[in-house]
Simulated assay, not measured.
Amino acid sequence: MLYLEKEPFRRAQYTILENGRELEKRLFAYYFMDGPANIVVEEIASYQNVDGGFGNAIEPDFRLPASSPMATSVALQHLVHFDDLPLAKGVISKAIAYLDNTYVSERKGWFAVPRTVNDYPHAPWWGCDEEKEICAIDANWGNPTAEIIGYLTRYREFTNLDVDELISQATRYLESMNTFTSFHEILCFVRLYRLLDEKTAASLRPKLYEAVCTLISKDEEEWRTEYVAKPLDFVTSPDEFFCVDRELIEKNIEYYINELHTHGKIKPTWSKSFYDGEMSRAWDEWVAIITLRVLLILKSFGRILL
Results as ranks from 00 to 15, higher is better:
33 M>P: 02
56 N>L: 12
184 H>Y: 07
105 S>C: 14
114 P>C: 10
150 G>F: 02
110 W>H: 12
254 E>G: 02
83 D>V: 03
15 T>A: 12
225 T>D: 06
165 E>L: 13
246 R>M: 15
30 Y>W: 14
6 K>R: 11
8 P>R: 07
60 P>I: 06
183 F>Q: 15
149 I>S: 03
256 Y>F: 08
245 D>I: 00
39 I>W: 02
119 D>T: 14
92 I>N: 04
265 K>L: 05
137 I>S: 15
34 D>Q: 12
117 V>L: 08
66 A>R: 10
202 A>T: 07
233 D>I: 00
67 S>Q: 01
239 D>K: 06
105 S>G: 07
92 I>E: 01
156 R>Q: 07
302 G>Y: 13
275 Y>S: 03
270 W>F: 05
50 V>F: 14
59 E>H: 11
97 A>S: 11
47 Y>E: 12
7 E>P: 02
238 P>L: 14
220 E>M: 07
35 G>T: 09
105 S>V: 07
220 E>K: 02
274 F>N: 10
49 N>L: 08
59 E>W: 12
167 I>K: 10
73 S>N: 09
154 R>A: 13
204 L>S: 05
101 N>K: 09
84 D>I: 13
128 C>D: 12
107 R>V: 15
159 T>N: 05
126 W>P: 02
277 G>M: 06
115 R>V: 01
156 R>W: 00
292 L>H: 06
81 H>F: 14
198 E>T: 14
250 E>T: 04
91 V>L: 10
58 I>L: 11
222 E>D: 15
148 I>D: 05
290 I>M: 13
26 R>V: 03
81 H>R: 08
305 L>Y: 07
262 T>H: 15
238 P>A: 05
123 A>M: 10
230 K>H: 08
124 P>Q: 04
211 A>L: 10
7 E>Q: 09
66 A>Y: 06
158 F>K: 09
43 E>Q: 06
213 C>I: 09
100 D>F: 14
76 L>V: 13
78 H>E: 11
33 M>V: 04
274 F>P: 02
288 A>S: 11
297 I>W: 14
261 H>M: 14
256 Y>P: 03
296 L>G: 03
132 K>L: 12
273 S>K: 06
36 P>W: 05
140 N>S: 09
4 L>G: 06
96 I>E: 11
248 L>W: 05
291 T>L: 12
45 A>M: 08
151 Y>N: 07
265 K>T: 01
170 A>M: 07
275 Y>I: 06
